[in-house]
Write a protein that binds this DNA or RNA. Structure first.
Length: 110
DNA sequence: GGTCTGACCGGCG
DNA sequence: ACGCCGGCCAGAC
């Protein structure tokens, strides 16, 4: 579609995140070519409620912190979903963040 | 129609 | 090492 909405691109990438893996907003933005637009990625997630197929819980900030947990129906929802996929979350942050980190720029390799 | 904010990130002092 | 500030896009007031 000519509608080259940034949101749509973000959704596509987020959907491609493998189970048991996570990525950061900046990584997605970087893959899309606008590394400085990480904020827009977060904003896109805010609108991700339009598409429940988007695993927003697999997207965290660069610190591996579940910054978006407050936007889920329940605070423990994000942690619960991650735990279900084998991702350990302690104190609202992802354990082995660097190990399970999924860099779209590298994995998809534009 | 200008201004501010937002689930961020990187650079600079 | 820590704190501040600018930047990017889209939506709300």
């Amino acid at each position: 579609m000519n509608n080259h909405n940034f949101f749509n691109d973000v959704y596509e990438v987020v959907k491609l995140i493998p189970k048991g893996r996570i990525t950061s907003y900046g990584s997605i933005a970087k893959y899309l070519g606008t590394s400085k637009s990480a904020r827009v990625v977060g904003w896109a997630m805010n609108n991700s409620h339009s598409d429940i197929t988007i695993p927003a819980h697999r997207v965290v900030n660069r610190n591996g912190l579940l910054t978006g947990k407050h936007h889920f129906p329940q605070k423990k929802t994000m942690k619960k979903l991650l735990s279900k996929e084998g991702i350990e979350v302690v104190d609202d942050k992802v354990v082995r963040f660097k190990e399970i980190f999924w860099d779209a720029s590298k994995e998809l390799e534009l």
